[in-house]
């Protein structure tokens, strides 16, 4: 399918050598939304969880230490910028790199927590993120081998072959693992139990936005 059918009229391009970024209303909207969220998250403080105790009327507070806070904020900003980049890029290999970056940074955001259950879930998610780099980059390589190009603009004009469809599904499996969508959601769901709410939100937001963009990219390749 054509880029303009999916995203609206092309408003302009940003040429970075072979990696050309196409600006359509759809891409620009997603880009700006992610940037606004990243700015909000960068400015906000973390939540302090208040937990009720069993057997008594007391409660305990779970807060985030300063150095942990700084690292997690830094990683959350990087995650937001990577998501924004994935929204706007017009190159297939470039988008896989952005998604790989999001996967690694997501693990990093929760790896600073000192809660065994959360660390265990993050470890399992890290394993999936590692495994999924095979279908992610493998899918992009299959499409490159089948068409000889990586530019989404050129790919949109090429009729789909069985090898391209296979590559596209491989890419989808890679993205599903890297962003941890259902049915592989359990690892991420456990990760959200940790305190430090705004940084956890960017994990959610990045998977959501990346999946929307990935569906657009797959439609460009397959149809």
């Amino acid at each position: 399918m054509d880029i303009t059918t999916l995203g609206g009229n092309i408003l302009g391009t940003i040429p970075l050598g072979d990696i050309v970024i196409y600006l359509t209303p759809f891409h620009l909207f997603m880009f700006v939304v992610v940037l606004i969220f990243t700015a909000l998250i960068a400015m906000s403080r973390t939540e302090t969880q208040v937990e009720a105790e069993f057997g008594t009327l007391k409660e305990s507070k779970v807060s985030v230490g300063l150095s942990e806070f700084k690292t997690r904020r830094f990683l959350a900003i990087v995650c937001g910028l990577a998501t924004a980049g994935a929204m706007i890029t017009g190159d297939l290999f470039n988008i896989t790199l952005f998604i790989a970056l999001i996967g690694i940074v997501n693990v990093g955001i929760v790896s600073a927590v000192k809660q065994v259950d959360v660390l265990d879930a993050a470890y399992q998610y890290g394993i999936i993120a590692m495994i999924s780099s095979l279908p992610l980059f493998g899918g992009a390589a299959m499409i490159l081998a089948a068409t000889g190009t990586l530019s989404l603009f050129v790919l949109s004009g090429i009729a789909a072959t069985p090898m391209m469809i296979f590559g596209a599904i491989l890419l989808l499996i890679g993205i599903a693992g890297e962003t941890g969508i259902a049915p592989f959601f359990a690892t991420k769901a456990e990760m959200f139990r940790t305190p430090g709410s705004p940084f956890i939100l960017i994990i959610h937001l990045s998977s959501l936005m990346v999946i929307i963009r990935a569906i657009e990219v797959l439609l460009i390749i397959v149809t």
Partner: peptide, 21 residues
């Protein structure tokens, strides 16, 4: 494809940041 090279090294740098922290 210079932008890809920047991204690849960013991925490496982030994993080093996390691991060293």
């Amino acid at each position: 494809r210079g932008f890809d090279t920047i991204l690849e090294s960013t991925i490496l740098m982030m994993s080093f940041v996390i691991a060293s922290w």
